[in-house]
């Protein structure tokens, strides 16, 4: 059994590797500069334009090798500061993570108690439901102009946008988890004459914890999605700003680097919350 499991993991790993190599190879072939393009232009003109434009074509996508070089470049020096608009990719990621964690923490502070309240009272649940349903699907970019206009501070605005986008999954999951606590457990608590606060903390919270954690996991993923969009709009610092700044320069290699990094950090955040979730699960 164990051998089969091992070999399955091994085979999956090999398949992943093969897919990766396939993608990179296709990409490399597709982006290789076409040899022997024969449009000859005036050398004086050629000096003024990019290499591709000089041969009568447009600048192509970078090859995987170019991107590898760019990534290596960023890894070698992730924390430089060359002026207020030019900071290393490590610093930009730290800014983004800081904003995400702050916005997410605020959202958790609001969503968990409020979700508790909603979950315990069918009346409040029904009353608040329309608001939640309308606000939940709103895109972060739609909130941004309103936030900038009313809050009048771009740093707080981006944190607000993360807050408002990551609050809903936690709120809904908390309410769902609290409402779904087994009747028998509550009845047992009542027969034992446990006070309402003690019931909330000793019975309902542990019972709803796995659902709450699932909500948090969804929320942190959303927060990380939102930060890139928010920073592209507001600028200044952060990984979103980095992407935007390199878009200015049409530097696809740098943008791909940022995409990979955003993916890896998002994965790490998700894994951390998944680990936390296993701590609070219980067998039925």
């Amino acid at each position: 059994m164990a051998a089969l499991k091992n070999s399955l993991g091994l085979r999956a790993g090999l398949l992943s590797l093969a897919i990766f190599c396939g993608i990179v190879a296709t990409w490399q072939i597709a982006t290789m500069p076409a040899g022997g393009s024969s449009v000859v232009v005036d050398p004086e003109y050629a000096k003024l334009v990019g290499a591709a434009a000089a041969t009568g074509s447009t600048t192509a996508l970078p090859t995987p090798a170019d991107i590898g070089v760019t990534i290596w470049h960023h890894i070698l020096d992730p924390f430089y500061i060359r002026g207020s608009n030019d900071k290393g990719i490590g610093i930009q990621l730290a800014y983004s993570l800081g904003r995400v964690l702050l916005g997410f923490a605020l959202a958790a502070l609001v969503a968990v108690p409020l979700g508790f309240l909603i979950g315990m009272s069918p009346l409040v649940y029904r009353a608040l439901d329309p608001f939640i349903q309308v606000l939940k699907p709103v895109s972060p970019l739609a909130w941004m102009p309103l936030a900038l206009y009313t809050i009048k501070d771009s740093a707080i605005s981006s944190i607000f946008v993360i807050f408002i986008c990551s609050v809903w999954p936690m709120l809904i999951n908390t309410a769902f988890g609290v409402a779904g606590v087994r009747r028998e457990w509550l009845n047992v608590a009542r027969t034992l004459e446990v006070g309402p606060f003690r019931t909330a903390f000793k019975v309902i919270l542990p019972a709803a914890a796995p659902t709450i954690m699932t909500g948090m996991r969804i929320s942190v993923g959303i927060a990380w999605l939102v930060i890139v969009a928010a920073e592209m709009l507001v600028g200044g610092t952060g990984i979103g700003y980095f992407v935007w700044n390199e878009w200015n320069n049409l530097s696809i290699a740098n943008i791909v680097t940022a995409i990979l990094l955003i993916g890896v950090v998002g994965l790490l955040l998700d894994q951390i919350l998944a680990r936390l979730a296993t701590l609070v699960t219980y067998p039925e």
């Binding site: 207020s84 608009n85 102009p145 009048k152 200044g236």
Partner: peptide, 20 residues
């Protein structure tokens, strides 16, 4: 003076109006 790169004119306007 810190010169701050900004993403678009609407953001420049809003950040100026908000005294940032």
């Amino acid at each position: 003076v810190e010169v701050v790169k900004t993403a678009g004119w609407a953001v420049v306007r809003d950040k100026s109006l908000s005294k940032e």
